[in-house]
């Protein structure tokens, strides 16, 4: 279980997050929805360990990983993140992008390569090993980002508007891929998006944030049927 417990964050005098609380279990997809600048990305960064909260804490499986004075390194949290602009390493080939994040353990060179090939095959990028990210199409880059995020076998995956620049067909394909990941690997996914349709397709639960405050968090059917206030109603276009 990943728990965000009463987390607050300020940049200067601006309060970005105010006593925010949420929980997510493995195998669950939670959509974080809210207008631009409401603190969604900041929350993901705090969960990932890229920033400290000013107040509150983050726990992973009961272990405190983030407080104001404590920060467990991002690579020791069993989580991964897909950034909004994907953050693929442009100087590395597809294979090297994957190789950088996986532990070689005691695998032989051959088995190691087989493992990379298997990861790439999972996202339909088999045979693209020696291409650079700029030689891939938009959809292929997204798939590489997903492959890289999963290569370290995380328990939780944070996705920051990963499909915002894709056409509808590609978006649909990738959404199916995310659903498969959830079912096959039982990964808990926190998914930031502006796209309400995406929310209804992917999410089990929805967390709606406005100006750093959690407006409503619940199963999507409940949110749809019982929006807590006018803001939620307007944001989700519920009549």
């Amino acid at each position: 279980m990943l728990t965000v417990d009463n987390v607050s964050k300020k940049y200067g005098n601006v309060e970005i997050l105010k006593c925010l609380t949420l929980e997510i279990s493995p195998g669950e997809i939670m959509a974080l929805v809210g207008p631009s600048g409401c603190g969604k990305t900041t929350l993901l960064r705090i969960i990932a360990g890229l920033e400290n909260p000013d107040e509150g804490r983050v726990l992973i499986d009961g272990t405190e990983v983030s407080t104001k004075n404590k920060l467990v390194a991002p690579n020791k949290r069993s989580l991964s993140m897909i950034f909004q602009d994907l953050a693929l390493w442009p100087h590395m080939t597809v294979e090297k992008n994957i190789e950088f994040v996986i532990k070689r353990d005691k695998l032989t060179r051959n088995n190691y390569r087989l493992k990379i090939d298997e990861i790439l095959a999972n996202v339909n990028l088999y045979g693209y090993n020696n291409r650079y990210p700029h030689e891939l199409s938009g959809g292929e880059r997204q798939r590489l980002a997903i492959a890289r995020a999963l290569a370290s076998k995380p328990m939780y995956l944070l996705m920051d508007e990963p499909f915002s620049n894709l056409d509808t067909i590609l978006k649909g394909e990738l959404q199916d891929m995310v659903m498969e990941l959830k079912d096959n690997f039982r990964i808990g996914i926190i998914y930031v998006t502006h796209n309400i349709e995406e929310v209804f397709v992917l999410a089990d639960r929805i967390a709606i944030i406005n100006k750093g405050i959690m407006e409503q968090i619940d199963y999507k059917e409940k949110v749809l049927n019982y929006p807590k206030n006018e803001f939620v109603r307007r944001l989700l276009k519920i009549r």
């Binding site: 390194a73 953050a87 390493w89």
Partner: peptide, 15 residues
């Protein structure tokens, strides 16, 4: 260099 590129590396098992 976009700091995201380093952050993405720190998220994986990178020292």
């Amino acid at each position: 260099i976009n700091p995201c590129l380093e952050e993405a590396a720190f998220l994986s098992t990178a020292r």
